[in-house]
């Protein structure tokens, strides 16, 4: 996919999610939170599917055929990050919809891991990419 197509997908999913969240929080809709998060589920599904396809193709051919040219380690890392993000969103929906007595830190642990690891991983790049 070209950059503009990927950006369009991101834009549509996030805008739809923000609009649904605003409507839900203003209590004009009484939708289940799992339904409000549908745009993000769609986005996550596309991203994970693309990553898994690229990972399988990389393992079979031995190199990355796409224009993104990510190493195998980077692909596994991105799948782990997506897994953490997905876990956070599922736990958040469960907390908001079904388990009001669930401790907040259980919800935020995957997000902390994701942000902490991303921050550590970004450090070597802070002086390289401008």
């Amino acid at each position: 996919m070209a950059l503009v197509q990927r950006a369009s997908l991101t834009y549509v999913c996030i805008m739809a999610f923000l609009i649904l969240t605003a409507i839900r929080l203003d209590q004009r809709l009484e939708w289940n939170w799992f339904l409000v998060f549908i745009p993000l589920w769609v986005f996550d599904f596309v991203v994970v599917a693309l990553l898994v396809i690229k990972l399988i193709s990389h393992c079979r051919v031995g190199y990355d055929q796409s224009d993104m040219s990510l190493s195998l380690v980077n692909k596994v890392w991105l799948i782990c990050v997506m897994g953490l993000a997905l876990t956070f969103k599922i736990l958040l929906c469960v907390r908001l919809q079904y388990a009001a007595d669930m401790a907040h830190y259980w919800v935020f642990v995957p997000l902390w891991l994701m942000l902490g690891l991303s921050a550590v991983r970004l450090i070597p790049w802070t002086s390289k990419l401008r």
Binding site: M1, L3, R6, A7, L9, T10, V46, V47, L50, M68, L70, L78, V81, M82, W112, L115, G116, S118, A119, L122, I123, W125, T126, S127, K128, L129, R130
Partner: peptide
């Protein structure tokens, strides 16, 4: 994810340092 780091930097018009500051502040 969907974008490489250089694409993200290009698209958002931010340096990696700014992204890093955003990440750390969000964590805190």
């Amino acid at each position: 994810m969907l974008f490489t780091l250089s694409e993200t930097v290009q698209w958002l018009g931010m340096t990696v340092f700014e992204l890093w500051v955003h990440t750390v502040s969000l964590l805190l």
